[in-house]
Design a protein around this nucleic acid. Structure first.
Lengths: 109, 109
DNA sequence: TCCAATGTTCCAATATAATCGAACATTGGA
DNA sequence: TCCAATGTTCGATTATATTGGAACATTGGA
């Protein structure tokens, strides 16, 4: 597989986005990608889990339309499809990301 | 049980909200409650499913902090905890509700 | 050509969730 | 007091997800 397939935004369903986010591991990946603001390899996003488990979660994030993965040599560079999702579902991802900060920082609410 | 217990907003987790919304039946309940803008009985929110199934979903919606249920005689009146959730997680529920309309109305995106 | 690095795929095991019938609890009215 | 109405709880079944080891694919460098 030269490059990985991703769904077009037309076929990205809100409920799949929510489902993908409703898992701590996947949410953590999304949050890190948002904070990084640049492409990260799967290795950089490693969460002390077997590669097969991480790969499983990336697959779900991709099929939900949240993450885009570009093959670069032996590495896979991942990024959030933030603008695209904002366009189709304004505020959803943005507010969720903000809310994750709120959960961590007790002063923010 | 005279009245049903609900979690305080302090213990309402974002990820549980997302999980609760990531199911078509529960999403439909939430959308209907939002559109109704008034308390609805479980019967009014019936989705052609056995009572026990609906009750299961209401339980999850309650424990996630999304729905408040007040016992009134033999009926249970349900409402969205919209303002409270907006306060704690601004924009999340609002944008999701807007997005559900976008999914239905092809002109809106 | 060989090999290490990076992930994916496959598969089986385990865990979690959804479904729904039946029994139960509570209420209000006849 | 009896009963119908409204939901919940219980328990069993089925469906779906997660986990992780092992094998595999692809790439780039030695």
């Amino acid at each position: 597989m030269r490059q990985i397939k991703h769904p077009a935004m037309e076929q990205v369903e809100l409920i799949e986005i929510l489902y993908a986010l409703a898992d701590p591991t996947r949410m953590e990946i999304v949050v890190r990608l948002a904070k990084a603001g640049r492409k990260l390899t799967c290795g950089e996003l490693d969460l002390n889990r077997p590669k097969s488990s991480m790969s499983h979660h990336f697959k779900i994030l991709r099929s939900a339309g949240l993450v885009e993965t570009v093959v670069d040599g032996t590495e896979h560079m991942n990024s959030l499809r933030l603008e695209e999702i904002e366009q189709k579902y304004p505020g959803v991802l943005e507010s969720v990301l903000k809310a994750t900060q709120a959960s961590v920082d007790p002063d923010s609410h």
